[in-house]
Amino acid sequence: MSSPLARSPIPPGPATERDGWEVDARVPGGPLTLSDETPLAKVHVRAPFDGASRAALGVGFRRTRRADLGAGEVLVVGSGPGEWLVLGAPGTAGALRAAVEQRLAGTGEFTSVLDLTHGRALVRLHGAAAPAVLAGVCAIDLADAVTPDGSAFRTSVAGVVTDVVRDDLGGTQRSGAAASDNGGVRSYLLHCERSSGRYLADALLDAGRLSGLAMTGFRGLA
């Protein structure tokens, strides 16, 4: 029996296979794009809000950081109070979960680490006009002063509970500590329940119709 292929809830255009996933075969590019990033590994962490686990993960609530937790470069997102989401390359979920568990084991705190790769949909809205598109479906202030690069927040996007992560690409400064404009291109990761993924992608494409938003291929974290 051949290995089954994992499928995203968002139907791809021309499809190809990558790391056991069916992904959109188009080369990512364009001034304003939406890409399906569902194949990224998604490891969910529960731990005390502000304890040793937070220190071990290196980031707190509402912020993100790039790091290597032992399974390659990942994006650690402080997605909720006492809640983290760690995003890694496709196909690394098992190793990433194990690495995170190992990292947290020494804290002595009550923690849970779950692989939610298959339970969530993830898209990236990328381009200078991304805030304008998002403003059509999201009430949060997307100004640099309020939600700079490296921000994370949970809100309603087109009526769907969504974790929004500002993750500008191509910039020079990635710590996201407090800076706003790091020279990169505006980019948002939007993360929701898998069952709502198709709807969310359609809603974003609709909101970006007049701005020229187009679907493109898988980008990944780079």
Partner: peptide
């Protein structure tokens, strides 16, 4: 505005 009624699909919907 635009019709935005969230809908949810199972993986077997196609």
């Amino acid at each position: 505005g635009r019709p935005r009624e969230p809908v949810r699909y199972s993986p077997m919907q196609p």
